[in-house]
């Protein structure tokens, strides 16, 4: 059953219960418990097409609780905590920011625990059964570009984690909502007016954030792995012409490795996976300022390569 097939009340009844709800997101199953109805409602909007599991059918990776801290501030300025098995990795947030807190906390769980995969910091999309990896370097404009591609015929595999399976070198999709930041929210709304963006959260540690709901087809195909074919380092540069420049492989590898979540921890496995991947991929720098022009360059690449 999908999240969207339950009403907000039905979902809240589940999240306040002892067993919570179990979200099946990419390769992970997450048990979530919370009493915050507003948060449940936003979660439903953003994870609409994801399935819900049950404790007797799924082994759970992360048990996440989102509850208010038991203190006097409850009445003045309500707060909310993210916790996993008694650990509180963050200071409490204002209760109105429960959604970004959950998203960051979920990232934290993956980055900390999912060491059975090589975790690159990159968005992943796919065309003609070939995946493009867009590494996230500061100011790269990766999320905006990935979001735009996902609404123009590319399959969306991931925004934040490029999860590489050490068994076969393929990419395991995790098509979670994409957090769009500040100006890019409007940029994306202009680009794709019909796309669903959840409520805007102002004054977070990353400014204003709005989450883009992933396309239903991306969620439907979340169990089909991707095959790495291109590694493209996007670089947003205002007023620049779109320019796709091929890149040296050893340089690309160092850039990917130093920006990864757990390349060091993977040791020799990581080196072998990443050299194999870079070997098979063609690597580029992509300088761009106009989304349409960048996308048409990438489409040309995908259709002719």
């Amino acid at each position: 059953m999908k999240l969207g097939s339950y009403s907000i009340s039905e979902l809240t009844n589940k999240t306040v219960s002892k067993n919570g709800i179990i979200l099946l997101v990419g390769p992970f199953s997450v048990r979530l418990r919370t009493r915050d109805r507003q948060f449940v409602s936003t979660l439903r909007d953003l994870y609409l097409d994801f399935s819900i599991g049950s404790a007797d059918k799924q082994i759970i990776d992360f048990h996440i609780d989102m509850f208010s801290p038991p203190n006097h501030r409850r009445w003045i300025k309500p707060q909310i905590n993210f916790s996993i098995d008694g650990l509180f990795p963050f200071s409490p947030f204002s209760v109105s920011h429960a959604t970004p807190l959950f998203e960051w906390g979920f990232n934290w769980c993956i980055a900390r625990n999912a060491q059975n995969y090589l975790l690159l910091h990159a968005a992943v999309l796919e065309k003609n059964n070939r995946s493009v990896i867009l590494p996230a370097l500061p100011g790269s404009g990766k999320s905006t570009l990935a979001a735009a591609l996902s609404h123009t015929g590319w399959r969306f595999l991931s925004d934040e984690f490029c999860i590489v399976n050490p068994r076969d070198g393929k990419i395991i999709p995790i098509p979670r909502p994409t957090p769009l930041k500040n100006e890019s929210i409007q940029v994306f709304r202009n680009f794709s007016p019909d796309a669903f963006i959840g409520p805007l959260f102002h004054n977070t540690r990353k400014g204003t954030i709005g989450h883009l709901r992933p396309p239903p087809s991306a969620v439907e195909q979340q169990n089909n792995p991707g095959i790495p074919h291109w590694i493209i380092f996007p670089k947003y540069q205002s007023n620049s012409d779109t320019n796709l420049i091929s890149l040296d492989k050893s340089f690309s590898l160092m850039k990917l490795a130093s920006n990864a979540f757990n390349y060091e921890i993977q040791s020799e496995i990581g080196f072998k996976l990443l050299t194999t991947m870079v070997d098979k991929c063609t690597c580029y720098n992509l300088v761009f300022s106009d989304l349409n022009s960048a996308i048409s360059q990438l489409n040309t690449l995908a259709d002719n390569d």
Binding site: K249, S250, L253, M254, Y263, E268, F271, T275, D279
Partner: peptide
């Protein structure tokens, strides 16, 4: 030492220290 060469350049993985060098 695991060495992967691309053209004249190489990436070296040193499995004792776990460090990767270009």
């Amino acid at each position: 030492l695991l060495i992967k060469q691309w053209g004249d350049n190489a990436i070296v993985y040193h499995s004792k220290s776990g460090e990767t060098h270009q």
